[in-house]
Design a protein around this nucleic acid. Structure first.
Lengths: 340, 340
DNA sequence: TTGAAAGCGCTAACAC
DNA sequence: GTGTTAGCGCTTTCAA
């Protein structure tokens, strides 16, 4: 057992109090950042502080959490995904959460349940009172969020908009529209749009933004087959035929996110289309990683780091019953890149 | 307050027990995965289960943690760094931790303290009994680890070897040697080695491995100025002179890690050196990201994901007082790439 | 100013 | 099988 390893038994508040000859309540008042009125004489205060110091007293945050009903922990539930260097988007998001949380003296719990965990079990581990609130990013799990919400746990949805819950997202619609505008301005008349197989709100908004702007400008948008694996975005034969058509060819491929776009560049070059001259490609996300990659994508920089940070601030406001707007949509930025 | 938000007061074990007319201890035995002997009649068992179900009972993990002295949480303390898409290495490491932790039904706490936090304060937040053990990655914080160790908290050091603590690392020495061998075999006689400014054990081991193999093969190693910012690895004038020397020129630059190597490629091409023909470059890390970047680096793939996963397993073994080896060194792999 | 006492929700001996 | 009884370490009224 963990507590046997430290042969030296842990010093408790009671020990410190006893050593000074006062009650634990007094010790508690002194040794914790308790804003309440309890005033203690300078003498006992310093005695207590000194004793705590020399005895090596370390408050037990678990006991404190139980008593206060506050853990100073917030959870992040990200589907069943793990961080990885290939998932730049997720790294940025979590980094932003870390940053904001640390500033607010909160720690971040990465909740990960093995894929396929039944909903009740997932809810049980997420809503077990170990965290004061939850950052939720699993829009394609339809059953989970409502169940979770019923537990009363404060929740903020990130990246995707979840009706009924507070959320922090990027301006996906605006970003999609901006890309369509760019392509239209470059003279493209017909583009293939590569969408994701999961139609979560951010993905849909990007496409709708793109389509609506394209329509305004009379640009033709063909929806390609939906991509399942971002690292292997193959073209169907029908799609290739569209790219090669003589009379009214597709001259640009707009992808719902950057990795797909990068891979698409590779595939297109393999098919003999020089980029950007013979074929334009656009992405979406624009993480800092973009600088290092082979194809400097024409894309939208969505501020995922800031989305993460803001979601933490929102969540803590919620936890503290501060008034907050229903949702935040953070602005995105157009990155010209060199693929369109 | 968080508990005011849920107007419906939380159902406790006592509530469930009372509703069935039994004692909380009985309820506890039934409703928790308690391996102990307490046997309960099938009748009360099902009654309890049913009551818990309909009342919506949800165990309070904080209370359980306090009683059991076990939180089912492990912490990861990574200096004062945040995750980001530019730090592929860290993302892989954390992803591996997540993966292993989730399999063992543990959650991962990302402990982040604002940079510049004084050591006592950092120790206080790390060793506050909220986590059963700590994964430590901050080798350049000399004061922190010993202080932390004195608290009795189980600790496993990751990536860097910390004398006196259990650790999980990659075979940095072997990787360094492997790169030297490759360069020597390619006929290079004189190489510039770009080291990091912080001489932590992994960095030192890579260099020493490189140097020792170079020595064996009669290859000359010149230590360049130590790099501070991996994204801006400038060459000093003296270094450029070495690269341009007529009689006995440097023909390869070995970097202590990949991002530096990528950036170095850019700088070298800017200086007019074609890669790999006029100048070879090697890196170290080889995260999956490598596939996407502009320069397919000749590098070492260190299994950071696996290091993360293994460190979690080691830590939990430590927490459970299982016998474990003092340290693990995981094997690395040579990636030929195309820059050397 | 300080102390007493009653929790917070759950676990774990041990007695019945 | 089930209940009793102490905690786990800290917070928080409320009296003294």
């Amino acid at each position: 057992m963990a507590d046997l390893q430290d042969g030296n038994k842990l010093v408790t508040l009671r020990d410190v109090a006893r050593s000074v000859g006062v009650n634990v309540a007094t010790a508690s008042a002194v040794l914790n950042q308790t804003r309440s009125g309890t005033r203690v004489s300078e003498k006992t205060r310093t005695a207590l502080l000194a004793a705590a110091q020399t005895m090596g007293y370390r408050p037990n945050e678990v006991a404190r959490s139980l008593a206060r009903r506050r853990t100073k922990l917030i959870g992040f539930f990200a589907r069943f995904e793990f961080l990885s260097s290939r998932n730049a988007f997720l790294s940025e998001l979590v980094g932003g959460m870390q940053e904001a949380a640390s500033l607010l003296e909160y720690d971040l719990v990465l909740h990960t349940v093995p894929e396929g965990t039944p909903v009740p079990r997932a809810v049980a581990t997420l809503a077990d009172r170990r965290v004061d609130g939850l950052l939720f990013f699993a829009p394609e799990e339809p059953a989970l969020l409502p169940e979770l919400r019923r537990t009363g746990l404060p929740i903020v949805c990130v990246v995707d908009h979840c009706p009924g819950s507070s959320s922090v997202t990027a301006d996906d619609f605006g970003g999609g529209a901006r890309l369509a505008r760019h392509l239209a301005e470059k003279g493209h008349r017909r583009v293939l749009y590569r969408d994701w197989h999961l139609q979560v709100s951010s993905v849909v908004a990007r496409r709708e933004g793109f389509q609506s702007e394209a329509r305004r400008r009379g640009m033709d948008v063909i929806l390609g087959e939906r991509v399942v694996n971002v690292h292997a975005p193959h073209f169907t034969e029908a799609e290739v035929a569209l790219l090669r058509e003589e009379r009214h060819p597709v001259t640009a491929v707009a992808c719902w996110e950057d990795t797909t776009a990068s891979r698409t560049c590779e595939v297109l070059e393999g098919l003999g289309f020089e980029i950007p001259n013979r074929m334009a490609v656009t992405g979406f996300n624009g993480t800092q990683l973009a600088e290092l990659v082979r194809y400097p994508l024409t894309t939208i920089r969505a501020p995922w780091r800031e989305v993460g940070a803001q979601s933490v601030r929102r969540l803590l406001a919620l936890v503290n019953d501060e008034p907050i707007p229903e949702w935040d949509t953070l602005p995105v930025e157009f990155l010209p890149g060199g693929t369109a």
